[in-house]
Amino acid sequence: MELFLQQLLDGLATGALYGALALSVVLVYRASGIVNFAQGEMAMFAAFLTWQAHTWGVPLVLAIGLSMLIAFAFGAGVERVLIRPFGTTAAAHLSLIIVTLGLMLVLTSGAGWTWGYLTKQVPPVFGEGVVDVGASAMSRQALGIILAVAVMSVLLYFLFQKTRLGLDMRAAASNPESARLSGIPVGRMLMLGWGLAGAIGALVGALAAPQLFLQPNMMAAMLLYAFAAATLGGFDSPVGALIGGLLVGVLENMAGTYIDIIGNDFKQAVALIIIMAVLLFKPEGLFGSRTVARV
């Protein structure tokens, strides 16, 4: 039972990161109708910015805040410069996916060219040490990750549910034409959606870097887990993305512990299995909206 509780706690900590990155994927999907394959690399690049600022003497928390601001501006710029010119038609979606794949490669190469490919050690944001949780224990970093993602989720809830700006963003994402007729600047709202996704990714990158060790390819596996979380929760459901991330994190840990054939070296297969199972049996995910089309 103690082992089960320990794996559950560890799974919730990693799942919180998966859910937060999945949330950034979902925000982009709701804004533009595409899956941004560069989301992980955008988070990685922001993590390098955090590390660089910290090595220059900026306090770590302030460095994370600065990288989130830069990532926000970068995400908004990507939507304006690379995404919007292609339009939002179904025919443009394949072109947009290829653009995000190209951006992924550019960011990976750019990080390697700028900072090199050797791993860099990033100090944990919440310090060293452990915290007792019943019969088990969590590192302060893991507990801090859960709390940070929880606070971020609450802030986003108030943004989208309690503010005019959030309501405008939701309207622009769900029905752009009606929102435009109502006087909402749809283009600006979609830019803000991409910017928020970039800022969330920057936070995820900074929180994940101490565990993954900072290097240009560090977010590749995490992006797969984020896709699994978004698929499980529903690509049009921010709440589903967060819950899906927690479920994926727990399932991954439990499978690695209790299924010998998977172990610690084959846990990425869990994400692929989840994606395939959901797409086969419940394509809209646990919290997504079912699409109804007239034939």
Rank of each mutant, 00 (worst) to 15 (best):
F48T: 10
M42P: 09
G244Y: 06
S237M: 06
A31M: 11
L27K: 06
R84E: 12
G249H: 03
L279T: 13
A179S: 12
S136N: 10
V130A: 07
T163V: 05
D10Y: 03
L5G: 04
L5I: 12
V106D: 00
P59S: 10
D236Y: 06
I273S: 11
P124A: 09
N175A: 07
A92H: 08
G19E: 02
L165S: 05
T88F: 14
R170C: 03
G75A: 11
G110P: 10
D168N: 01
A230I: 08
A38L: 08
S182Q: 15
G15W: 03
F213T: 06
A90E: 15
S237Y: 07
P238I: 02
F227N: 08
V78C: 11
A53Y: 11
Q52H: 15
F266D: 05
M152H: 00
L159F: 02
K282W: 14
L159D: 04
L62A: 14
T14Q: 12
L96M: 15
D10K: 01
L232R: 01
L17C: 02
L23Q: 13
M254I: 09
R294C: 11
A90C: 03
P238S: 04
E41T: 04
A13K: 07
F281G: 09
A47M: 07
T88Y: 15
A135K: 09
M222C: 03
L196W: 04
L62G: 02
S153M: 13
V154L: 12
M218D: 04
L62F: 09
A137H: 09
L159E: 02
D10V: 00
I184K: 09
L214T: 07
G116W: 13
G11T: 09
S174L: 08
A73E: 09
F86I: 12
Q268M: 11
G75I: 09
G102H: 09
T163N: 02
E79I: 06
R30M: 14
Q141T: 06
V250H: 08
I184S: 11
Q121K: 12
G205I: 00
A13G: 05
V131T: 08
L155A: 09
R140C: 06
F72T: 10
G263Q: 08
W115L: 14
L21S: 13
A47Q: 11
S237D: 05
I243L: 12
I261G: 05
D236E: 12
M44N: 10
F74E: 03
M44Q: 07
A150Q: 12
F281N: 02
A73D: 07
L5A: 13
G240W: 04
L280A: 15
L3I: 04
A53V: 15
S182L: 14
G244R: 05
T163L: 01
R294F: 14
G245W: 08
A277V: 11
A202K: 03
L12D: 00
A92M: 08
V239W: 08
P210K: 02
P283W: 12
A63S: 15
V133D: 14
N217Y: 03
A229F: 01
S109P: 02
I261C: 01
A16L: 02
F227C: 06
G256N: 03
A221I: 04
L60C: 01
V61H: 01
M68H: 07
Q7D: 11
Q141P: 06
D265V: 05
A179V: 03
Q141K: 04
M44W: 06
A73T: 13
I274C: 05
